[in-house]
Simulated assay, not measured.
Amino acid sequence: MIDNNSIAWRKSTRCGSNACVEVAKVDGQYLVRDSKNPEVSALAFTEAEWVAFTEGVAAGEFLF
């Protein structure tokens, strides 16, 4: 299990509050957590999944 306190979490510079997601890369995985509830387990994604997600964001695939 990964020690949450030793992870360098990053939050978007566009986040204007404490209600954002945070991302960290640990051991080849990308971890995502809710900054409002950092004690809750983070979601983990492989590099391929993360690349597909960020490319989808850049392409506007998640707009509604």
Results as ranks from 00 to 15, higher is better:
K25H: 11
R14D: 14
F64N: 13
A19N: 15
N18K: 07
A19P: 01
P38V: 00
W50H: 07
G28D: 02
T13R: 15
D3M: 00
V40A: 13
T13C: 14
N5E: 10
I2D: 06
D27N: 15
C15L: 12
F62C: 07
I2E: 06
W50E: 03
A19I: 10
V40Q: 11
A44Q: 09
R14H: 15
A8Q: 08
F53Q: 08
T46A: 05
G56K: 05
P38S: 02
K36M: 09
R14Q: 14
T54A: 10
E55H: 02
C20Y: 05
F62D: 05
A48R: 05
F62V: 07
E55L: 04
V23E: 01
T13P: 08
L63S: 11
K25R: 14
G60L: 04
K25E: 14
R33G: 04
N37V: 13
D3C: 00
F62G: 06
N18S: 13
V40S: 09
Q29H: 07
K36T: 06
A19S: 15
S12L: 13
R10Y: 13
R33F: 08
K36F: 03
Q29T: 01
A52C: 01
S41A: 15
P38Q: 01
K36E: 10
Q29S: 06
V40I: 14
K11L: 13
A58N: 08
V51M: 01
F53P: 03
R33I: 03
E61M: 04
M1V: 07
P38D: 01
V57K: 04
W50C: 05
V51Q: 08
K36I: 04
R14F: 15
D27F: 11
V40K: 11
S12N: 14
I2Y: 05
S35R: 08
V32E: 08
A52Q: 12
E61R: 12
A8F: 02
V40M: 08
C15S: 09
S17G: 15
G16N: 09
N18I: 06
S12P: 08
C20R: 03
S17V: 10
A24L: 01
A52S: 14
G16Y: 04
A59H: 13
E55W: 00
W50A: 09
V57P: 00
W9S: 05
A48L: 01
G28I: 00
E47R: 14
L43I: 15
K11N: 14
M1S: 07
E49R: 07
S41W: 04
I2P: 01
A48G: 00
V57I: 14
F64E: 13
T46I: 06
A24T: 02
V40F: 07
T46G: 09
S41H: 12
E61A: 07
I2Q: 02
D27T: 13
